[in-house]
Design a protein around this nucleic acid. Structure first.
Lengths: 219, 219
DNA sequence: GGAATTTTTTGCGAAATGGTACAAAAAAGT
DNA sequence: ACTTTTTTGTACCATTTCGCAAAAAATTCC
């Protein structure tokens, strides 16, 4: 036939243009496959998720899985990394926006609840919390990621409170770091309880009560 | 027919008197065996703990394990029940004692930290939190126990705050239920972070900061 | 068209896992 | 001593699990 395959024109700068790989094309999209793997790990945890489950969920077979992401542990770590990126994106705007502190925190907890309660076969909870509970003790690399996750959240909250304090929304005596730890604690308790299928209403009530104390006590 | 026909209503009263059982005597003490099983489950979680591991740890062989405690899930549930009993005992006095609220809470957090940080091969964390993260979503019976654990803790804390309020240790506007949820949240965040090997000092600082805010002692 | 390259597919295999069958062992009752 | 009762110890089974090797397929490069 005519040679001249559909050569991608040089149109866009950073378009996801296929870079003309050399061999047999992949039958999967790494991104979506990783997403499916993440879903599974969130549902069942590391140990209870088998490579066969993962292969079935991603539509890949095990050798392909292996070739693409490494062994089970590596896949888990990559899934966790992906989860964190997703969470950062979901939270990013809110942490950036300069809203009144109360509104801001309300929105953060709302997004968190969306993340924790989603899932077809039950609330998926928070990967960081789940991973901390099980894998972080024994695996130094995973532990480092989990700890980083904690401090990242603490710092984001602390920045919020610090800003609010500068704007006069909090009393002079309020300690942003301490309040941030309480805000994180509230995130954690909500994540855990969500996983035990506590209804959203009750979780929202917990968040609101916590807000009352955190924002009111410093009045 | 798997049911055990034994159990004349004694055996639990503190009578170290061997009741002259009929067949071959047990080579293990059910209590200590269950304790070993609990240790293992706390260390690795449900899925990652094999029956072989449990048999090795208890010194029993698998058929004996099975005969004594049922299958893996039953053993897990019994271990969890045992954990809760132990925790209740450890906390009981403190929740009962009529100390100044701050002292009381300090002691509670100290005991909690002892429980969460103990363990030869790493901090064992809180069984309720770990179980919530993994098993509670899929298993209704376990979920019920976990939820009960949460409300039990919430209620105990609420009672503390209510009492403190009556004694005038808290402002009239303080809401014992909300404060209790914050106190629980602090327990949870500590349990999770402990599991990620956060040092005791930092965990204590988190507890103390939370106390400052909850008791309005932030100055 | 043929070589080179990359991925998929099939299937193997060794180990581990949860669970059970069954005989031997150890005690009490008679 | 013999029976009964209960537990132990060995062995086994069916399945799952993780990982890999080797062949087949699909694509680009020459």
């Amino acid at each position: 036939m005519v040679q001249k395959s559909k050569r991608p024109p040089v149109t866009k700068i950073d378009a996801p243009v296929p870079p003309k790989r050399r061999g047999r094309p992949r039958a999967y999209q790494p991104d979506v496959a990783l997403g499916k793997a993440l879903d599974l790990f969130r549902k069942d945890g590391f140990a209870a998720t088998s490579l066969d489950d993962l292969a079935a969920a991603t539509g890949m077979n095990r050798p392909s899985l292996y070739g693409a992401f490494g062994d089970k542990r590596e896949l888990f770590i990559k899934s966790y990394r992906r989860y964190r990126e997703d969470a950062r994106v979901a939270m990013g705007d809110i942490f950036r926006d300069e809203l009144p502190i109360r509104r801001r925190l309300e929105r953060i907890y709302a997004v968190a609840l969306d993340i924790y309660l989603s899932g077809e076969s039950g609330p998926r909870g928070c990967f960081t919390v789940m991973t901390a509970a099980s894998e972080a003790v024994h695996d130094p690399d995973i532990r480092a990621m989990v700890l980083e996750g904690f401090t990242e959240l603490d710092k984001a909250f602390a920045a919020c409170f610090r800003q609010a304090k500068e704007k006069g929304e909090l009393s002079e005596s309020a300690d942003p770091v301490v309040l941030a730890q309480l805000a994180s604690a509230t995130i954690h308790t909500i994540a855990i309880r969500a996983r035990a299928r506590m209804p959203r209403k009750e979780l929202e009530a917990i968040a609101n009560g916590a807000l009352d104390v955190m924002l009111g006590a410093a009045k």
